[in-house]
């Protein structure tokens, strides 16, 4: 059966992905060399330059070992590049800071703190008064769908719930950029889909800049304004693809949209090329 996409006006939202925007993150000729055990240098990232516009949802897509997470860690200030550098709002990044909030695949929650304690941690560190931090944190916990779990410890939660807490914990200190490192990579397919939808809903409300690392093509296309396709050994930017799909995006509609399907098919083909060892020169 041929899928005929509907062309009704439900697609025409007030917001499109083309908006006037200015650069918030500038990555300038970044290279990263790791020393492997055999004292051989491994070039993880080679000469990466990339500009990310304020309010954009940008995915970095690539096979494992292409250095996409490393690139994210460099923007986060957790890793210093071997050469080149990154700037946040024109200022060179020298270390981590609350303007860039990470969300990791491993959740990295504080296990000795409850859900509420985890979410309140950032605001408290920023000097927000306890009562105020608690009110804000409770609202965030509700927003990520965990109302009623405020006093649970991380060990009592499922993977999906932990990642919701991690997202709320990062949003709580109002970073200007969200750095998401394969955040849904450890989750089962169903949970993953639900979290993608919820992330998109949350994001479409306040349009924070998001840098999102993934190796899932449909996840990247579904969420992003821009997909940065990377190749490996050494990690290089292969191509930057603008995803010109209207927002707000709804999964059930998007899956039927031939434009979405074409993006996925094209990018998957590109992915196969960069991931196939035979195609490397």
């Amino acid at each position: 059966m041929k899928v005929v996409p509907s062309r009704s006006n439900e697609w025409v939202g007030p917001v499109t992905s083309q908006r006037p925007a200015s650069a918030i993150i500038e990555i300038d000729r970044v290279s990263q060399v790791f020393q492997t055990s055999a004292r051989k240098d491994h070039l993880a990232l080679s000469d990466i330059s990339l500009t990310i516009e304020e309010g954009a949802f940008v995915s970095i897509l690539g096979p494992s070992g292409c250095g996409k997470s490393t690139l994210l860690y460099i923007v986060g200030g957790f890793v210093s590049p071997t050469s080149g550098g990154a700037k946040m709002k024109g200022k060179t990044i020298t270390g981590p800071g609350p303007d860039r909030g990470p969300v990791f695949q491993e959740f990295a929650l504080f296990p000795w703190k409850t859900v509420l304690g985890n979410v309140m941690y950032g605001p408290r560190q920023q000097g927000v008064r306890p009562t105020e931090a608690e009110v804000q944190s409770r609202a965030l916990i509700e927003m990520v769908g965990l109302k009623g779990y405020e006093n649970f410890y991380p060990k009592e939660l499922s993977g999906g719930m932990k990642q919701r807490v991690a997202l709320a914990r990062t949003l709580a200190y109002h970073p200007e950029v969200l750095l998401m490192d394969e955040p849904f990579g450890a989750l089962d397919a169903h949970t993953r889909t639900r979290l993608q939808n919820d992330l998109l809903n949350i994001w479409e409300r306040d349009r924070k800049t998001v840098l999102f690392v993934t190796h899932s093509v449909d996840e990247a296309v579904f969420l992003s304004d821009k997909v940065v396709m990377m190749s490996k050994s050494p990690g290089r930017i292969r191509q930057v693809i603008d995803i010109d799909l209207p927002r707000p995006r709804r999964r059930n509609e998007l899956l039927l949209d031939p434009r979405y399907q074409k993006y996925v098919v094209d990018i998957e083909r590109m992915f196969d090329e960069v991931d196939d060892p035979g195609s490397r020169s």
Binding site: G76, F78, P96, G97, P102, A108, G122, P175
Partner: peptide, 9 residues
């Protein structure tokens, strides 16, 4: 990553 999360805060 737990330490990184703290550093970012």
């Amino acid at each position: 990553k737990m330490l990184w999360s703290g550093a970012a805060m």
